[in-house]
Design a binder for these strands. Structure first.
Lengths: 340, 340
DNA sequence: CTGAAAGCGCTTACAG
DNA sequence: CTGAAAGCGCTTACAG
C-alpha cells in the first residue's frame, strides 16, 4: 500500500539548481512565502514555514547569491593578489589587509597567483567578484589590468612606473643606513645574495650593490633562483666553498637570510663573528632564531593602510582614476638584531 | 565662451553607482550596445565603442557583479574560515586549499575570524558570497551553522561530534608513538605545555598526559594562554625557574615549541641534551632553527584534499547532507628531527 | 552595426 | 498570515 498521498512530489532540481520558483511550486505557496521561510522573517505561520523548509531541503534549494545581491546591494568586496602564501611575508601582509578591511566592513577575497594553475583565469575571476583589487602584480601588471577591466587596482611594490594607483615599498633609505652600519662594524668583503635569474639583477640588489660601491667596496653579487630558505642555504654553502674572503651576506629577503644562518651554523661559521647576515622584510620569525636576524623591515600595517586608503578613495571618487596616477611610499627601516 | 555643445551631459551617477541604463542614456545607445562596448564583444563600430567607453568612464560605470552573475551563472566560490594568519600553520593550510581548489576551477574567499572585528558578521558575509564553507569553527560552530543557513559547511578539527561534515585531525596514534619515543630516549620528567586557560585542558594535551601516565610518568601540565612563540618562551622561563626536575617539554604546537627552544638557548639549557623539545604541526619552519624541531606533523595537503572532497561531494549531491554526517580522518605523524 | 524583448533569481513594498 | 506586482542590473538570443 502506498503512503499518504502528497500534494506535491518534489524532485531534485531537474536541470541544475532549484530556484525559488521550484520551491514555491512544490510547496504550493508564493515565492514571497519561500523568502520569508528561508530568511527567518516574521509574518509566516509555523506550519507553512516547516513545510517550505522541508521542500527546500528536499530540492536542495539554496538561494542564489546573485539574485539576492542584486536586490540587497551586497557587501563590499576587496580582492587581494599575492605571490606565495608559503613565504611568511605574505600572510603577514594579508593579515594586515584583512584586519583593516574588516574594520571598515569589507570582505577580502585572496588570490595566490603562485599557487594557481591558471593565474590569468584566477585574476579574471577575482575581478568578477570584487569591487577593487590590491596586490603584487609583478611583470603581469599590464595584462592583468586589461583582464580586470573596470575594476580599479592598487599595485603594491611596482617594478616600473605604474599607470595605476600604487604603493611603493622603497628600500633606498634603509639601504644607505645599512651600508653605513656595515662600514661602522668593520665589514670588508660583503656579498649581496639576490633572488633572480643568473643574468638579471633585482632593483633592490642593484641599489644595495651601488650603496656599497659608493663606500669603496667591491661587493660580490650572487644570484639565487628562489626566494626560499633552502635556496639561501644552498647558495651560502656555495659561497663559503669558494674560499674567497667574505664577512657579510646581505640577502634578498628574510627567508633566504634564515637559510644563510642555517648554512653558517652547519658549516661552523660564526654569525656575526665571522660573517654578518642581513635580511629584508622584518618578519617576526627573525626574532626566533639564533642569532636573531638583523633586517630591513617593512611596515606591513602601513602598506596595508596606504593601499586601502587608495582603493577606497578611488571607489569613492575622491581620487583621480585610471589614467591619472596616485602613489604612496612606505620605506624600509633597519631593524638591528644580533646577526649584524 | 562655452565649449562646443555636447549631445549629452554625463553626470557622476546621481544616487549611488551608475548602471548600464545611465550609460546607455548618456551615450544615446541601447543597453545592448553598452554591453558590447564594455565586454569587448564584436558587432560594434569603433566610433560607437569609443563614445560608450568614454561616457562609461565619465560616469565611473562598472558593471554590477550581481547583475552579471545572475545571467552568466558566476564562478564556483569556496569560503575558508581560519583562525590566525599570523600562526604559520594557517597559511600552510590555506595554501593547500587554494592550490587544490584552483586546480578544480574554484575560487577561494578567506575569512580570518581572529582578525575580524565582528566574526559573526564576517561569517555571514562569507556565506553570502560562497557556495560552500570549509574551516575551523571551534566553539562557535553551532552559531555559525545557523548564520550560514543553507550554505553547506565542512568543519576542520572539530572540538565535539559534529552534526556537519568534518575532517578530524587525530593526534592519538602519533601521541602513542611519541610517548614510546620519549621512553626509549630515557626521558624521566616530561612537561606538557598546553595552550589553554589555567583551569582548562585541551583534548590534545589530555591525550598526551594520558599516554605518558600509562607509561608510568607523572607528567606536569602547564597552561600557556596564547599559542605563540612569546608565550612558549615565557612559560619555559617560568618552568625552568621552578628548579623542578625536567627533561622534556611537549608543546601544544610548533610555534610555542619554537619559543621553548629560544628560551632554552637563552637560559643555557642544552636541547636535546638537557631537555628534549617537541612541537605539533610539522611546520617547514621547524627545520630552519637549531636544533631542528621534532614534531607531530599534520599532512595539510591531506586535510585540504579530504575537506574539498567532502565539500564538492555535498554540493554535487553525492554525499548525505546536513542531518546525516560525513567524516574523514587525517592522523598526525611523528617527524623526528634534532630536538627530541 | 544596432536595438526591443525576455529573462536570470531574488527581495521589497504594497494589498488583501 | 499570504500573494500579485514591480524591479534590482545585466546578458542572451532574436530581429532588423
Amino acid at each position: 500500500m502506498a503512503g499518504p498521498p502528497r500534494l506535491t512530489d518534489p524532485v531534485p532540481a531537474p536541470g541544475g539548481r532549484a530556484t525559488i520558483i521550484d520551491v514555491a511550486a512544490a510547496a504550493g505557496v508564493s515565492r514571497q512565502t519561500v523568502t520569508r521561510a528561508m530568511n527567518g522573517m516574521p509574518g509566516i505561520s509555523a506550519t507553512t514555514k516547516d513545510r517550505v523548509l522541508a521542500v527546500a531541503e528536499q530540492l536542495r534549494y539554496r538561494p542564489s547569491r546573485f539574485g539576492r545581491g542584486l536586490v540587497t546591494g551586497g557587501d563590499h568586496q576587496l580582492g587581494l593578489v599575492v605571490n606565495d602564501l608559503r613565504n611568511p611575508y605574505t600572510p603577514q601582509l594579508a593579515a594586515s589587509v584583512f584586519q583593516l578591511a574588516a574594520e571598515q566592513g569589507w570582505n577580502v577575497m585572496l588570490a595566490d597567483v603562485d599557487l594557481a594553475s591558471d593565474p590569468d583565469r584566477m585574476v579574471t575571476a577575482l575581478g568578477a567578484q570584487t569591487d577593487v583589487v590590491i596586490g603584487y602584480f609583478g611583470s603581469s601588471r599590464d595584462r592583468w589590468r586589461d583582464l580586470l577591466g573596470t575594476v580599479p587596482m592598487v599595485e603594491l611594490d611596482p617594478m616600473t612606473d605604474p599607470p595605476t594607483a600604487a604603493v611603493w615599498i622603497d628600500p633606498a633609505e634603509g639601504i644607505e643606513v645599512l651600508a653605513d652600519h656595515l662600514v661602522a662594524t668593520g665589514v670588508r668583503h660583503p656579498v649581496v645574495l639576490d633572488n633572480s635569474a643568473p643574468d638579471v639583477t633585482s632593483a633592490r640588489a642593484a641599489l644595495m650593490a651601488d650603496a656599497l660601491r659608493r663606500r669603496g667596496y667591491l661587493p660580490d653579487l650572487v644570484h639565487g633562483l628562489h626566494g626560499t630558505a633552502e635556496c639561501g642555504a644552498e647558495e651560502t654553502v656555495r659561497i663559503l666553498g669558494r674560499k674567497r674572503r667574505l664577512d657579510a651576506i646581505v640577502a634578498f629577503n628574510d627567508v633566504m637570510a634564515l637559510g644563510v644562518l642555517q648554512a653558517c651554523r652547519r658549516e661552523g661559521v660564526d654569525v656575526p663573528g665571522d660573517v654578518r647576515v642581513v635580511g629584508v622584510d622584518g618578519l617576526p620569525l627573525g626574532a626566533l632564531v639564533s642569532p636573531t636576524l638583523t633586517t630591513l623591515a617593512v611596515d606591513v600595517d602601513a602598506v596595508a593602510r596606504e593601499a586601502l586608503d587608495l582603493a577606497l578613495g578611488m571607489l569613492a571618487g575622491e581620487l583621480p582614476r585610471s589614467g591619472a596616477t596616485v602613489q604612496r611610499t612606505v620605506r624600509h627601516r633597519l631593524l638591528l638584531r644580533e646577526s649584524a
